Simulated scan of single mutants.
Amino acid sequence: MKKEYDYLIVGSGLFGSVFAHEATKRGKKCLVIDKRNHLGGNVYCENVEGINVHKYGAHIFHTNDETIWNYVNQFAKFNHYVNSPTALSKGKLYNLPFNMNTFYQLWGTKTPQEAHDKINKQIEEYGTNNPKNLEEQALSLVGKDIYEALIKEYTEKQWGRKTTELPAFIIKRLPVRFTFNNNYFNDKYQGIPVGGYNKIINGLLENIECKTNIDYFQNREHYDSIAHKTVFTGKIDEFFNFEHGMLEYRSLRFENEILDTDNFQGNAVVNYNDAEVPYTRIIEHKHFEFGNQKKTVITREYPENWTPEKEAYYPINDEKNQQIFNIYQKMAEKINNTIFGGRLAEYKYYDMHQIIGSALMHVKKEFKE
């Protein structure tokens, strides 16, 4: 039976937008729907005082994959922003990731050998060969001082649980550099799209029919009937009516403030490690694009327990949740007319370049290329 669309894409984040773009290039007719009042998912930017505000938290594009880098550069020029966050702990600022600047700030060490010796001595004293929780894992990787100043309280705020109650696998490794290099990512390509991420989304979805403020689940039967196939990027457990239980997430709350100053903190990202500070970081958005506006916009980021009416940001990939997801994944594999993709549908933490890569892989599979 002839239907109105070849593909219904539920969700206009990077996965849905890339798939819609590629399918349209191949002559397919797509409809993109999104329950929010804007397109772009979590990469959406809102212009405030001439500043591109990352509405759903800091998004810094970074990749080693030249193909992915060239792909996004079709839609926007990227600046040379390098992510170099700082962390405030007990009244003192530290550079991140852990590097020679951090070690000097902690101990006054000036050479790589001095720093090595300090860390190795603490690992020997406080570490264990078989870490059973995140605290033991961190102590075994970097020792007591780095753990207590820069990991413990921040991580407990982020996850809402004590580090002794968190699984060790959350930090399989910790980046430790014995150079004076504050570049958070090791990736060859890094930057922010000039003019914000909306440029990329608008480029991907150009000439594609899109509808916002549409909740797929409120009129599911209708939307399923108008397209031959569905690309679903929402929560996989919701797709299956929570038949085998509800998957868990961590959520975030953002508080924005416009300040009558041209420079609040001198950096795009400053982490607040201390437990008594309720937010994990402050983002000053203008620094992502080297702005010189007379005002500035800051965002305080508060981690929260997730409930169904909140946004789901981070999957909690512990054993219990993973077992539930595995059941849903097997159910999904049996449905021929639906493609599942993205952070929520795959119950997996993805960086932006990984989501784009996943979408392109699904395109190749779908069109047998």
Rank of each mutant, 00 (worst) to 15 (best):
C45G: 12
V10H: 08
D274K: 13
F61D: 03
P175G: 04
R300W: 13
A359F: 02
L141D: 02
N73M: 00
D262E: 14
K3Q: 11
N241F: 05
N263R: 10
N317A: 13
N326V: 02
W69F: 08
K157T: 07
P97E: 05
L344E: 00
I171L: 15
L31E: 02
V269K: 03
T261S: 06
K365E: 14
D215S: 12
I324K: 08
F325L: 05
L252Y: 02
E243T: 09
T111A: 06
F290R: 15
W306A: 05
E148A: 10
T338K: 03
A115C: 04
Y313R: 06
P97V: 03
Y349E: 11
N101P: 01
V269Y: 15
N241W: 06
K110T: 08
G27L: 01
N79W: 00
A312H: 03
N305M: 12
N37H: 11
D6Q: 02
L204R: 09
I324F: 08
G13D: 00
G234R: 02
Y272V: 07
Y223K: 11
R26V: 00
F325P: 02
T63G: 05
L259M: 12
K365I: 06
K77H: 13
L14G: 02
E46L: 04
H228K: 15
E289S: 14
F169P: 06
E319S: 09
K77M: 01
D318F: 07
E66G: 07
Y56V: 02
T280G: 12
E238W: 09
N64K: 13
K364S: 14
I283E: 12
G245Q: 04
G91I: 03
I283R: 07
F98K: 00
Y216M: 02
M100W: 07
Y104I: 09
D318G: 04
L14H: 00
H116W: 15
K132V: 07
Y279V: 05
F103E: 04
A345M: 06
L139Y: 01
K162T: 12
S251D: 06
R161T: 08
A312W: 06
Y279E: 10
G127L: 01
G13A: 07
F367W: 15
E284R: 12
A149S: 13
A227K: 06
T261I: 10
E153H: 09
N42C: 09
L39Y: 13
V269G: 00
Y71E: 08
K229P: 08
N42V: 11
T233P: 09
N181E: 04
F98A: 03
A168E: 05
G357Y: 04
E125H: 13
G234S: 07
